[in-house]
Design a binder for these strands. Structure first.
Length: 467
RNA sequence: GCUCCCAUAGUCUAGCGGUUAGGACGUCGCCCUCUCACGGCGAAAACACGGGUUCAAAUCCCGUUGGGAGCGCCA
């Protein structure tokens, strides 16, 4: 490698949303770019005109932005670089390293089927490579044709992978891949090599589903006489059934996690630790990740996505976040539920007393929505907690709160405790009716804080409905 | 089917020839307690199997088994 700054890229194909596996790969690239003062490049691999959509491009960009994975260059689009690819293809043709192929997709499919039936690896038989020059010229005029790279047969190709180690493949296993379709568009293995070279990529970090492609790409690098980048293939993320992660396993898109009330910091922390570790540390600030992340410490084996651990981590992050930060994040969730207007001071207070009780922003909303709207409890709950036994004491507490000064957590608590003393009932007996009456639920933040924030009037007003 | 990759508790992992195999999530129990959480204490739970190499193997080598990926005019 030269002494220039390292350059990394994330190169998704816009055929769907950004999933968490892609996000992790992007993050690893981002982390190293930041760690080494390098450049993080975003490249959209949209050469599949059939399946690429503008919506997917937008979804990917939105996800990257939400996660805070700012790229330094791009996004580049492969569809805007056809000229560069064609120059490279022409060069290969000129040097007899690539040749036209006239086989139809149907013919190729038949050959594949036969190979499979004979338990052979389906490898192109070079029918068109063997054509005579005159035959080639004649056929060229008859129908559109594709271009194949003539793959060398001798020796082994070795990928020096930072994560997987040396991976050796016999050149014989690699067949003559199509580098330009009959419609003139270049194919993946060609574009990725040309782009990585012309964009000066020094480190190719991608999913290990690309490991098998790497030897073919190395042949292309060699055919062009280009130096190799450093390769690192990060293992897949699997579902609980060890199958490749898909919709069946629940949410896989990055934005789905945002909608479920996850913090980007937690998602990223979970993702970085899935497949990588630093001693026994579980929680990292972004600065720590940048400082401590290394490819050498990435595990070579696939990881199973564990939603429970992500949820736990999200709770950790919610607990340690600044309340005003959480307030900014929570407000849209409240609005989405039609809860408006929201007094920002109440929101902040509500968050402060709920942070340690919730694990997502969605749960946060459930925990504090009663501050802004009246929740009518189930009749069953009213019957259960507002009994002939408790009602007198509930009334006494309300009476005690009426002229209470100062108005704070401890003074409110002492009103309750007085009644507990006199009644001989447990605090739960008296506090729980307040919880149900004020919040509409049996689960809520501490009741003294609830009353404190809700205020005398609302407390008395809501409780009176059930007495 | 062929080629490649992978293999420590249910899950993520530490370990890089000599450890009572460590941590985290989850699970279970106890404590704390106005609910729910948080927090504290404790428990159960792993080196896939078989051969080597070595005084010594979770660690190195080979095989088996299991899992994953690739084998497209997809990326």
């Amino acid at each position: 490698m030269t002494d220039t700054k390292p350059r990394f890229r994330f190169a998704p194909s816009p055929t769907g949303y950004l999933h968490i596996g892609g996000a992790r790969t992007a993050f690893y690239n981002y982390l190293l770019a930041r760690k080494w003062g390098g450049t993080f490049i975003l490249r959209i691999e949209d050469t599949d005109l059939e399946r690429s959509t503008p919506e997917s491009i937008q979804a990917i960009l939105d996800s990257m932005k939400w996660l805070g994975l700012e790229w330094d260059e791009g996004p580049y689009f492969q569809t805007q670089r056809f000229e560069i690819y064609n120059q490279h293809i022409e060069k290969l043709i000129l040097e007899k390293k690539a040749y036209p192929c006239f086989c139809t997709p149907q013919e190729l499919e038949a050959k594949r089927k036969q190979a499979h039936a004979e338990k052979r690896k389906p490898i192109y038989d070079r029918t068109c490579f063997k054509l005579s020059e005159s035959e080639v010229q004649k056929r060229k005029t008859e129908a559109p044709y594709c271009i194949r790279f003539h793959s060398p047969d001798e020796g082994d190709i070795v990928v020096h992978d930072v994560i997987k180690g040396d991976v050796r493949t016999a050149s014989r296993e690699l067949d003559d891949l199509i580098i330009r379709r009959a419609d003139g568009s270049p194919t993946y293995n060609l574009t990725v090599v040309v782009d990585d070279v012309t964009m000066g990529i020094t480190h190719v970090i991608r999913g290990d589903d690309h490991l098998n492609n790497t030897p073919r790409q190395i042949q292309l690098y060699q055919a062009f006489g280009y130096p190799l980048p450093i390769f690192a293939h990060v293992p897949m993320i699997l579902g609980a059934d060890k199958q490749r992660l898909s919709k069946r396993h629940g949410a896989t898109s990055v934005m789905a996690y945002q909608e479920m009330g996850y913090l980007k910091e937690a998602l990223l922390n979970y993702l970085v630790r899935l497949g990588w570790s630093f001693k026994d540390q579980e929680v990292f600030t972004r600065e720590e990740m940048i400082e401590k992340f290394s490819l050498e410490a990435v595990s070579p084996s696939a990881g199973i996505f564990n939603p429970e651990k992500l949820l736990w981590l999200n709770g950790v992050y919610i607990r340690q976040s600044q309340p005003d930060y959480l307030a900014d994040l929570t407000l849209p969730f409240l609005e989405k539920k039609g809860i408006t207007p929201v007094d920002p001071k109440i929101l902040l207070e509500g968050i402060k007393i709920s942070q340690e009780k919730v694990k997502t922003l969605v749960e946060m909303v459930e925990m504090i929505d009663f501050f802004f709207v009246k929740n009518r409890p189930d009749e069953k709950l009213i019957l259960k907690f507002f009994t002939e036994e408790t009602k007198p004491w509930i009334k006494e507490v309300i009476e005690g709160l009426k002229n209470l000064t100062p108005w704070n957590h401890d003074s409110i608590a002492s009103v309750f405790n007085d009644s507990v003393q006199k009644s001989g009932l447990g605090l739960g007996k008296i506090a729980q009716p307040f919880r149900v009456g004020l919040t509409g639920r049996t689960i809520s933040p501490g009741i003294f804080d609830v009353i404190r924030i809700l205020g005398k009037e609302k407390t008395a007003e809501r409780m009176s409905l059930y007495l």
